[in-house]
Amino acid sequence: MKPLLEIKDLHASIGGKEILKGVNLVINEGEVHAIMGPNGAGKSTLSAVLTGNPAYEVTSGEVWLKGENLLEMAPEVRARAGVFLSFQYPVEIPGVSMTNFMRTAINEKRKYEGKEPLSAKEFLSLMREKKKLLELPDKLNNRSVNEGFSGGEKKKNEIFQMAMLEPCLAILDETDSGLDIDALRIVAEGVNRLKTPENASIVITHYQRLLDYIVPDFVHVLADGKIVKTGDKTLALELEEKGYEGF
């Protein structure tokens, strides 16, 4: 097994307040890691820091993606290198069509990989193929990014983008929040079908429910900015029963 992501003693703050207080985590190819924990523990901060959100400041520590220094890369370079975040709150972008947005994104990634851009025809057939995976209607192509999408459509659209971009590391930030059971099943099936022996996922969730569908190899408890406990999938069940008291 090759390490895909190595996080070493990561500290990060927002507005001068320290949120991550020394996170250590190694993720190997082919693994699914769940990160659970109470609200305010730093779960979303971790995803923001890994993707280079400028609102957060890394104060110390290291993060390596396939042996490369992730923290030195611009957010868009991290994305092209294969780090994908399924946003907890996908952003609406009025006036920018899904097609234009996705085509720009795909071709940026291909350029980074030294590949030719996709033609309009190739791109549209790829869109059609990947959309089936998430049971997304065709009409979404011409709509503005996330504008007027329902909560479920927004989350499906995140996984659709993940299917298009084929990341090596997918971070799913509270992807289950606001989903009814049917949407949750579709989203989880999408994620499962995108799993390969070379890629990995971090599933951030407050509840155990999503982990019935996306079965993790490891479950970590993040509390007060640190990983305080690691176990297998049974840890999630234990947490569901006993709650986060004691952490």
Binding site: A79, R80, E108
Partner: peptide, 9 residues
Amino acid sequence: FYMQQRGID
């Protein structure tokens, strides 16, 4: 940031 996260500079 959302667009950057998708690889768009």
